Simulated scan of single mutants.
Amino acid sequence: MIVRILLLVGISWSLTACVQNDELAGEGRLILTSKTMRQLGPDFHSGRLAGMTLAVDPARGRGAWSKCRAAPLDCAGGESPGSTVHRCNAGKGTGCRLLVVNDRIVWKGPVYLRPSKNSQATYFNGTWPVTFEDGRSGTLVADRGTLRMSVAGSFENCSFDMSPRGKTGGSWAIKCFKGVEGSGSYEVQSAIRETRFDGTIGQREVSFTTTDATATGT
């Protein structure tokens, strides 16, 4: 009976924490600037997010982080996500929201990185619908900077790479498990928040676009 009660209490606590974290999670399009990233701790840059809680205020370029040293085995007793958000706000507004809770990106929207003022905002986390000029459609998924593309009826879960050059352009390459490869160039059209890709996949010339307005979180 005691074990059952403790189990129910644990489940109840976990569900309550999940609801609270969901309420504190940020939403919408997020661009992490160099100023904000400098405040997220060294583990963010290395991708080691286990036990990490990150909160950001994109409007003010603020950020705060905390880490449970026993992660991922036992994070009880560490700083709560709500406390990290409070420190991020530092008594100057209520704009901070959760980005990461214990290795899980909870931000409800696409996340981009802009490492310097004059650099492009690159895909970091989220899902972008892909529209081909020949009518095909698919998705481009970013998981902490690792990109994968799938196109219905053509190929699934292919590795996708973007190499920025300058403020708005660059090159792209795709590689699939069945030996299908392709490459080309892309151009960011900032006015309509759309990126156009041109090149070849296999022996076929292709043109496709991704649009920020329809992107979502993962």
Rank of each mutant, 00 (worst) to 15 (best):
N21A: 11
T218W: 13
A152E: 06
A213V: 11
P72N: 15
W65C: 01
R104L: 13
A55G: 01
L140Q: 03
A17V: 03
Y186Q: 07
L15A: 14
R62T: 10
A121C: 10
S119N: 01
P81Q: 12
S83V: 07
T210N: 12
C18N: 14
A25F: 02
L98P: 02
L99P: 02
V188M: 06
G77Y: 12
L49D: 00
V9R: 10
D198V: 13
F177K: 07
T210C: 09
L113K: 04
L73Y: 08
C68S: 06
W128T: 02
L8R: 05
G63C: 11
D22G: 09
F160I: 06
L6Y: 11
G47S: 12
I105E: 03
R69Y: 10
C75K: 03
T200W: 11
G145S: 01
D74G: 11
G47F: 12
S183N: 08
D198F: 14
M37R: 05
R204G: 15
V180Q: 11
A64Q: 04
A59N: 10
I2T: 10
L49I: 04
W13Q: 15
S159R: 04
G82Y: 03
R104H: 15
A55H: 01
F197R: 05
H45V: 15
A152C: 06
D103F: 14
E133Q: 07
P115V: 05
S154Y: 11
M37D: 04
S83E: 09
E194K: 08
F160E: 02
P81D: 12
K117M: 15
T168A: 03
G109S: 08
A173E: 04
R69V: 13
R29E: 10
L32P: 02
S137A: 14
C88W: 00
Q20T: 11
G10A: 11
E194H: 14
L7E: 13
S185C: 09
V106H: 02
C88N: 01
C176N: 01
S12I: 14
G153C: 02
A25G: 09
V106E: 04
E187L: 08
G202C: 03
G82E: 10
A121S: 07
P42G: 04
W65F: 11
V111A: 03
S159P: 01
K108D: 05
S159I: 09
K35H: 10
I192K: 07
T214D: 09
E133F: 12
C88Y: 00
N125E: 07
P110M: 06
V101C: 05
T218F: 14
C96R: 09
C18D: 14
D57Q: 13
G63I: 05
R48D: 13
A142Y: 00
A64Y: 03
R104V: 08
M1A: 15
P110D: 01
R165E: 13
S12K: 07
L40G: 06
S34P: 10
V151N: 00
A173Y: 02
M52H: 06
S150Y: 07
T84L: 04
M52Y: 05
R144C: 14
L7G: 13
I201Y: 00
A90V: 12
R60L: 10
K92H: 14
Q203Y: 00
P129E: 02
V141W: 04
V9W: 13
V151S: 02
G145M: 01
T216R: 05
W107L: 02
V19H: 10
A25Y: 00
K175A: 15
S163Y: 12
T216I: 12
S46E: 14
